[in-house]
Amino acid sequence: MRFELTDALAGLAGGAMIGVAAALLLLGVGRIAGISGVVGGLLRPTGQAADGDNAAFLAGLVGAPALAALVWGAPEIGATTSVPLLVAAGLLVGFGTRMGSGCTSGHGVCGMSRLSPRSLAATATFMAVAAAIVAAMRLTLGGAA
């Protein structure tokens, strides 16, 4: 196990920012901060105010880290460069989050914090499957991912 106190504190602080962001959306406008829901909504526009709201959330999510990177330097993004892997993973994440009505934010943060049985079951499922995939890839590819 690799444990650094600074990592844990940065994790708690960043996590708190995510939690406050979700709380702001709930108490401000009565919405659940589910990223897959926001993006899915934009892919099926209604022609109403919700489209602009979704676009505004997405602009903040994409734009703020990019602006911060200009000031403090770009973060390291250790993504694989295997195109087939990126495409397969993207398709699975996109299709799966819409089919299962949520991702790490909607089910993991917003749903678990209200003790929703659906969100607890979904989060346990995607965590377990993801860990199993990582373990399987370690066994077959020697941890190439």
Binding site: G96, A121, I133
Partner: peptide, 11 residues
């Protein structure tokens, strides 16, 4: 859906 998402996430 959660299982498909988890598979992609783990990849």
């Amino acid at each position: 859906g959660a299982a498909l998402f988890g598979a992609g996430w783990g990849l």
